[in-house]
């Protein structure tokens, strides 16, 4: 879903109000972004608890740094970039204790357990390289255009396409393998 200029303007207005001391504005910004940032972190880390922690960290850092935020740049690019980077940092920290192979796709507890298909999505994503996964997540879970992904990840559009196409080819092969195994 392309971020519209009107949405950018609403972000700027909420930031201005927050800097002016209005608590409601923080509520507005969190409300606008928490679901999508949580899902980005969830798909990047493959773990619901990590995703929750990452989302909190991103928002707290964002509010802390809002006074230095330059409104010439789009807020959504800035905050999504923070979410991807925080998720990558979390993966690095976790790598020291847990190997990727040991990690279940998306760990959630009790009634919130995901369906088998969603588990398969999570597992397949975790087999991608983190850089490739970031592109897939921004494309298929928050529906960004190639240009928006390039903006968020600060890479050329050509690299976005190359990573996305490679990652999807890998996912395609993974799915074919899974289909063969289940036969």
């Amino acid at each position: 879903m392309e971020q519209t200029p009107a949405a950018d303007e609403q972000d700027r207005e909420l930031i201005r109000r927050y800097l002016d001391g209005e608590r409601d504005a923080a509520n507005g910004l969190v409300g606008r972004y928490q679901k999508r940032l949580f899902n980005v972190a969830l798909r990047m880390t493959g773990n619901a608890q990590d995703a929750e922690d990452a989302t909190q960290t991103v928002f707290l850092n964002a509010f802390l740094k809002l006074q230095t935020y330059d409104p010439r740049f789009r807020f959504f690019s800035w905050i999504y970039r923070m979410a991807v980077n925080e998720s990558l940092n979390m993966l690095k920290r976790r790598k020291a204790t847990v190997t990727l192979e040991d990690e279940p796709a998306i760990r959630v507890s009790g009634a919130a357990r995901t369906t088998e298909l969603q588990d398969r999505v999570g597992k397949a994503l975790m087999h991608l390289k983190p850089d490739d996964r970031a592109v897939v997540v921004l494309k298929h879970f928050v529906f960004f255009t190639y240009e928006e992904i390039a903006d968020v990840l600060e890479i050329p559009v050509k690299t976005v396409k190359s990573r996305l196409f490679t990652a999807r080819e890998r996912l395609r092969l993974t799915l074919l393998e899974q289909a063969d195994e289940s036969c």
């Binding site: 969190v30 928490q34 679901k35 949580f38 619901a48 989302t55 298929h140 999807r168």
Partner: peptide, 24 residues
Amino acid sequence: RRVTAFLEHGGLREPPPRLQQTIL
């Protein structure tokens, strides 16, 4: 198309209900 449908199956997950308040 199957890969895309597979990835986008189920859409976005709701964040934990407490998340927004915890941040605020």
